[in-house]
Design a binder for these strands. Sequence first.
RNA 1: GCCCGUGUGGCGGAAUUGGCAGACGCGCGGGACUUAAAAUCCCGUGAUGGCGACAUCGUACCGGUUCGACCCCGGUCACGGGCACCA
Length: 804
Amino acid sequence: MSESYNHAAIEKKWRKIWEEKPVNPKDAGKEKYYCLDMFPYPSGNGLHVGHWRGYVISDVWSRYQLMQGKYVIHPMGWDAFGLPAENYAITHGIHPAVSTADNVKNIKKQIQDIASIYDWDMEVNTTDPAFYKWTQWIFVQMFKKGLAYEKEMPINWCPSCKTGLANEEVVNGKCERCGADVTKKNLRQWMLKITAYADRLLDDLDKLEWPEKVKKMQTEWIGRSYGAEVEFPIDGREDKITVYTTRPDTLFGATFMVLAPEHALAAELATEETKAAVEKYISDAANKSNVDRMQDKEKTGVFTGSYAINPMNGKKIPIWLSDYVLADYGTGAIMCVPAHDDRDFEFAKKFDIPIVQVIAKDGKEIEDMQEAYTEASGTMINSGEWNGMESAVLKKEAPHIVEEKGFGRAKKNFKLRDWVFSRQRYWGEPIPIVHCPACGAVPVPEEELPLTLPEVESYQPTGTGESPLAAIDSWVNCKCPKCGGAAKRETNTMPQWAGSSWYFLRYVDNKNNDALVDKEKAHKFLPVDMYIGGVEHAVLHLLYSRFYTKFLYDIGAVDFEEPFTRLFNQGMITGKNGIKMSKSKGNVVSPDDLVADYGCDSLRLYELFVGPPELDSEWDDRGIDGCLRFLSRFWNLFTEQYEKDAPETKELIYERNKLIYDITTRLQSFSLNTVISGFMEHNNTLIALAKKGGVDRKTLSAFVQLLAPFTPHLAEELWEKMGNSETVFSSGWPAYDEALLVTDEVEVAVQINGKVKAVVRLAKDVDQAAAVAAGKEALGDKLSGNIVKEIYVPGKIINIVVKP
RNA sequence: GCCCGUGUGGCGGAAUUGGCAGACGCGCGGGACUUAAAAUCCCGUGAUGGCGACAUCGUACCGGUUCGACCCCGGUCACGGGCACCA
């Protein structure tokens, strides 16, 4: 009896060997494959089994590419700026750099337990000045191109974190980080003009092999629409109000206008009688937090007392203010067509404003309208010169008509807003800008980068909205790089997204001090072929990274426009009953003990076996027993049968081909859970064949190779036992012969009226008549009544349709 | 409210996309080995009825198409995710 499967000894042995002789040597001669994980934030809580899953998936995929003869770029790094470290510093007085370094050390050890083929020479850390030098450099380039600009704006303000938040950090009106209700505050902010890239970000989605779901989410986020800008003269005044509309075809139905309370003309349009009410409405809206404003489903509004002129028909229409009009979308003012827009309809009903239908529904005017008719299909009515036209056609032509008439133009709009890029925090990249009274905002000269983050006495937010950096006079006061006069440094820092928007470029040239990445290397190793991570980054991180990459392409820093060719989103691992794993819920499962008890290989298998990789899965520790049992059984099978060296039989050849086919096709379609069940099933079959007559070496060898990406230690050990001196990862991927997958005989189910009553074995090319005859024979006296139809689907089913 | 997923045994999940529902694993029951236990191995395991070979029902619910539906179509419900007045 040979020795049984000892995972601890085997894993220890191979870790050491791989350390000395990596299985993925840097080999410029091979075709490259860049398989990237979304890099983690080094949290103090360490990794749980959910984090593991993504890394196992990416490692299996990487090793599969490796076995296909590619040089695999598979790096790992740390997204280490961010609020938790800063909050920890506030409560414990420990510098974020110190606690972060500790966390990195712990998590790195945990990640190394996975036995991934990460190339640690490529490691990056966003908080390393040598790294953020380039994060700052990119910002300076954007500034020079006019894509980074300052703007005083009402930003979301978290009174608890005492910091400004981007729209995307506000979840249901609450701070994404701490859950406090978000209010508003006017602050000077640095903005990035991502909207300048809106069209390209949208159009280039077509080029990507990404999940449709993610593409759709990005499409909606960017939110492009086509319509027209139309100018409405104000009765009794010289100036005009410009609106944006996607439905210029309904212009004759515009019976009122609404301005956002923040609109520049809002207060001015008030008359003596309405002044008090208008001013109150404006100030209420300004003080209302986003939460309140969103929760008020019921429309509110106030009449300004002024009128505009509908430029199509010359009619006087009232101008109202209401907060359902957004100040920062379109022009902050809308024309209202209550007959054909739900919101306008609701508003008109509530404030008793006339409703004029301009598109016929089913060819006629609706009597006693109860809801808006929002379809753009029907004939125009009540629309003067447009009467009789089809609204769908007019919708496209109207922008050009108003342009000819001189009061409008075709226009497209986006929901996407510019990106609020500054944070009033300490633990982030300092924004490399100097404010000079004479020269304005001046970038720190590139040769002075990185502008390092200074030591600070207190990490406490200032509470005034300024960063803690503002309290360091010696740092703030400086000379203007342009004129040499006294100037002050920018004290805002960058958001956590800054580093993560481009880190994937740096791995392939992480020590370069002269460029963010050498152009040759970028051309050779980039872009990323496969990007693996959680779906929670479907919009922001992926959109920002695409924006950065396009910008870097435009300035000639890289020669590709899209960073991630293919994307895979893995599902979350949850605790019992689908509850998200978290420290506070006490349901976190650490991989550390499982690795010690079951071995890395078994845990890797179970991470995949637990469920389809793209869906959420509930973790149940007990399931891992099955994976360890499978490996032990295969180990025993191998050690017994390899010595025996049974002769190859027809049955074994078929089984080997089927095994390679099953594993390969399932792996290629990313059905990793069924890859594992496939291994188990084939192992059971081989055990049965071993009892019958033995299993040949060629089949065992293929099994070991197929297993290698999943259980690298065990595979290497068995591969070595077979007398191989080179690693299994340089042995290639086994091939199957399609022709050998076809058997001479097939099992076919025999049905009566679609219900299975018997099973027959048939020669694979038997004809319909013979098949049906065999089926009837198998049915025997179960068959009764009048046969009305006989169906034979070759190799699948015989169905006899009878009537009693 | 709108958009996108998902719904299958006690549990996690399979089903080559319209062709034998429940693969594989967990758990559970029985047996072998053992002084005993663990480990291991063998058998069983959707529900109901029957000693039984077998019969009927069964993929969230209601209906439809089809020789045949977890799969396609129409409607309903539940859960999860995204967006949330974008003119």
